[in-house]
């Protein structure tokens, strides 16, 4: 292999409201950028081929697999990760609170992905049909819970957000 200089792409992204500028190798996956460059290890990597959904983050408001995006492609994007749902010390986001109350998590590894999927769904569709809910949640794999409590948590989060909106 020839020792040629590896291209570095300058990018600017906003992660959880914080602006970050970096030089990245083109092949750096957004998931690795978030975890290792931005230091936000709450986004987990489970399959790196876009099936398990553990690495789901919001890119410009839309839920996306961060293992299927190169960091260079995210230049200019606004990214939200699980760490952005509630500030340290602040109360949990209603979706987080719902997963806690409904025991919608066990080992916690897939949880960040489910949280971001649920947040994205409820922000776009505050009252999803069963079909819409399952369509969204079935894009994430969980091996511990059997999903029943995750579905219950998403419904509970829907109610919490609606109540919060009413106030």
């Amino acid at each position: 292999m020839s020792e040629h200089a590896v291209q570095q792409v300058p990018i600017r992204v906003t992660v959880n409201g914080r602006e970050l500028a970096a030089e990245v190798e083109p092949r750096l996956l957004l998931s690795d950028f978030i975890r290792h460059h931005a230091g936000l290890t709450g986004t987990h990597v489970g399959c790196e081929h876009g099936v398990c959904g553990a690495c789901t983050v919001l890119v410009d408001g839309a839920p996306q697999r961060s293992c299927l995006v190169f960091a260079a492609q995210a230049d200019g994007a606004e990214i939200r990760t699980v760490e952005g749902l509630a500030e340290p010390g602040a109360p949990l986001h209603p979706v987080q609170q719902a997963f806690h109350e409904e025991h919608g998590m066990q080992c916690g590894f897939c949880t960040s992905g489910f949280l971001m999927t649920t947040v994205a769904l409820l922000e776009e569709t505050p009252h999803p049909s069963d079909e819409q809910l399952v369509d969204a949640l079935s894009g994430n794999l969980c091996r511990c819970t059997g999903y029943r409590n995750i579905v219950a948590a998403a419904r509970s989060a829907e109610r919490k957000l609606a109540e919060a909106g009413d106030e």
């Binding site: 699980v82 949990l92 987080q96 998590m105 949880t111």
Partner: peptide, 9 residues
């Protein structure tokens, strides 16, 4: 749950 939910695991 709390630390896992906050991504602090």
């Amino acid at each position: 749950d709390e630390r896992l939910l906050r991504g602090e695991g």
